[in-house]
Simulated scan of single mutants.
Amino acid sequence: MQKQAHPAMSWSLDNVPYHDIDITAVRSREDLFYLVAGASFIEIAADLYTDNLIEYFNDQPEIMQWLVDYWKFEETRHGHVLRDYTKHVWPEFDWDRAYASFYADYSVQCTQEALEPSRCLEMAARCVVETGTATFYQALSGQANEPVLAHMASLIRADEISHYKHFYQYFRLYRTLDPTSRLKIFRAIARRVMEARNSDAETALWHVYMVQRNVDVNSDKTEFKKMCAQFSQQFRQYYPLGMAAKMLMRPLDLPKAVSRVVEGPLVKVAERVIGKKTSAKPEKQAH
């Protein structure tokens, strides 16, 4: 079904017109159900990793205030609007039970011990996470065949781009205070990229799947893995690989000529990572 322009796109995330949702267009889209419900879990749980970061940067009042007043507020708002969208379109899904199960699992994974060993490197890792969220919501906006969801995703994407810019600004500050080699920065970026593929998203999707399919935590994951692989293949065609490559390379501060040479291979690597099959067991990734 071809996506139609929404008659009034001037609304914000504070006043989403749920009554305008084209339920007939989206209700049968299993991929969108899982992506939206799973994303709502991760966003609402922002308080977990906000607390970790506040403790890590506890002598930096400006950063601490921004984390609480803007980042945490906007992340949880994203989660609330995605939750409400899920409940409106798929009211039979027990969102609250699935989220409670997810939170119990996820809270164990979000530990301060897994943060990067220096503040400069942790800010570089933050840029990776925000790259992932910004590109995810851009792809979701393209994949959505329902105008309210598509616009909602584009608004969230704009917030995530803003978050990336703030973390990048703080990264540059700490790189000045604590000069760090490109090799160390590259390794921090690479670690977070490799962790991200099978951590937060898979954990969230698994808890949606358990409630939706009425299975328990010890159930065989063969069908779940097949479903995730299918979603990955569908998602690839909308994923902005070039945008992801540019955002990931920015903390390396490479000369323009080098960036142009590196970007192509990096896009190909990212394409393989996005398209590869999900593993049987989620890896732990701290925020």
Results as ranks from 00 to 15, higher is better:
Asp253Leu: 13
Leu248Trp: 12
Glu271Phe: 04
Thr50Ala: 13
Leu53Pro: 03
Arg157Phe: 07
Ile21Val: 07
Asp59Ile: 08
Ile21Asp: 01
Pro240Asn: 01
Phe102Ile: 08
Ala100His: 06
Phe231Asp: 00
Asp59Leu: 08
Thr176Trp: 03
Gly79Met: 01
Tyr239Ile: 00
Val26Arg: 00
Tyr34Val: 12
Glu130Tyr: 04
Ala204Gly: 15
Trp66Phe: 09
Glu43Pro: 14
Leu48Cys: 08
Phe186Arg: 05
Ala245Cys: 03
Tyr56Lys: 03
Leu115Thr: 11
Phe136Asp: 00
Thr111Phe: 10
Val81Met: 03
Leu48Thr: 02
Ser28Asp: 12
Leu121Asp: 02
Ala125Arg: 12
Arg175Ala: 09
Arg236Leu: 08
Gly275Cys: 14
Phe73Gly: 14
His163Leu: 13
Leu53Ser: 01
Ala46Pro: 00
Met9Asn: 08
Gly38Thr: 04
Ala150Ser: 09
Ala270Phe: 02
Leu82Asp: 01
Phe171Met: 14
Ile21Leu: 02
Ser162Cys: 12
Ile63Ser: 02
Val193Tyr: 00
Thr135Asp: 03
Val68Gln: 13
Phe33Ser: 11
Glu43Thr: 07
Phe186Pro: 05
Gln60Phe: 10
Asp200Gly: 06
Glu195Phe: 05
Tyr70Pro: 04
Arg77Cys: 06
Lys72Thr: 14
Val208Asp: 00
His19Asn: 07
Thr133Phe: 10
Asp220Gln: 13
Glu283Gly: 13
Lys72Met: 10
Leu266Lys: 00
Gln237Phe: 06
Lys226Met: 11
Pro265Lys: 12
Arg29Trp: 11
Ala153Gly: 03
His207Leu: 06
Lys256His: 06
Pro282Ala: 14
Met152Ile: 04
Asp69Cys: 15
Tyr85Ile: 01
Val129Met: 08
Ser199Arg: 02
His19Gly: 07
Met249Ala: 09
Arg236Thr: 05
Ser10Asn: 09
Val129His: 13
Met194Thr: 09
Asp105His: 14
Val217Met: 13
Asp96Gln: 04
Ile23Phe: 05
Val258Asn: 01
Pro179Glu: 07
Leu67Gln: 01
Arg192Val: 10
Val193Leu: 14
Val269Tyr: 02
His151Trp: 10
Ala286Gly: 15
Lys184Pro: 12
Ala190Thr: 11
Tyr103Ile: 09
Ser10Val: 05
Met64Cys: 12
Phe235Trp: 15
Met243His: 10
Thr176Ser: 04
Phe33Gln: 13
Ser154Ile: 12
His166Ala: 03
Ser10Trp: 07
Tyr56Gly: 00
Leu183Ser: 12
Arg187Val: 05
Asn198Glu: 04
Lys3His: 08
Ser10Leu: 09
Lys284Met: 15
Asn214Trp: 11
Asp59Gln: 05
Ala286Met: 10
Leu48Gly: 03
Thr76Met: 14
Met194Asn: 08
Gln237Val: 08
Arg250Glu: 15
Arg272Gly: 05
Asn214Arg: 13
Val215Arg: 11
Ser181Arg: 06
Ala124Met: 03
Phe235Pro: 10
Ile44Glu: 04
Leu254Ile: 08
Glu130Ala: 01
Thr278Arg: 12
Ser141Thr: 04
Phe136Trp: 03
Phe93Asp: 01
Lys226His: 11
Glu223Ala: 02
His207Gln: 15
Arg260His: 07
Arg187Trp: 11
Thr131Ser: 02
Ser259Pro: 01
Arg126Met: 14
Val273Asp: 00
Leu173Gly: 12
Phe33Met: 10
Trp66Lys: 09
Val193Asn: 01
Phe231His: 08
